[in-house]
Design a protein around this nucleic acid. Structure first.
Lengths: 105, 105
DNA sequence: TATATAAGCAACCGTTCGGTTTCGCAAAAA
DNA sequence: TTTTTGCGAAACCGAACGGTTGCTTATATA
């Protein structure tokens, strides 16, 4: 059961949960109210997000507040880095092409 | 069979394929040589990558060259944007804290 | 023409996924 | 103390996933 951040964000519900708790910590029940699923389903998603440390818990009495571990998102950002260089090159080439077309017109 | 770029990059083999063909187009056989799987397995991955337009084909005789559709990667980058703002705020707060500790020392 | 090769496609198999239902536990409220 | 509430864990189910094997089609080569 090797959890991986890319697998974690593959599910649209989990991505929505991450967005939801990005700015404020929330309990599983509160989170579940925003979706058409049961609390248990949300709980499962939270477990997966916890396993790859995308989310952290804070216990308050019998309530558990979940919040985003935003630094972990940087792993995706770092993976994207290799492609960012390429799409900037392609953008510049397009730019040169447009320039060329302009001078020829 | 809802294909989605996030689901496409969830698989480590597919991520490796994307990196492999990022700089040069390759045929399925050539790609498969880089992994411990059969050509058919790679072919399946390429089909999934094609379905969400992360990859484009170029036919040359009986060979098919696959290459990266790098602009599509920006969708992930755009999704990350919402979190980028947050981690920069947190970074700045850490920065302020370090500054504070320095002046107090 | 006959043969070899590149590649896609379909069928099948075991595993994982996302969800529900049921249960147990601990904290708060009655 | 008893009841309610918030939560996670386990068992189960259908669907999807990743992979293999076998087949067909199309191009290149003898």
């Amino acid at each position: 059961m090797r959890r991986d951040i890319f697998q974690a964000i593959a599910d649209p519900t989990r991505r929505a949960i991450l967005t939801l708790i990005a700015l404020q910590a929330m309990t599983p029940n509160a989170i579940a109210e925003n979706f058409n699923t049961t609390r248990q389903a949300v709980s499962k998603h939270l477990r997966i997000l916890s396993e790859c440390e995308l989310v952290k818990q804070e216990h308050q009495g019998r309530e558990i507040y979940y919040s985003l571990e935003v630094y972990k998102m940087k792993e995706v950002d770092q993976w994207l880095e290799q492609f960012r260089a390429i799409w900037e090159i392609q953008f510049n080439q397009l730019d040169e092409l447009l320039e060329k077309m302009k001078t020829q017109a």
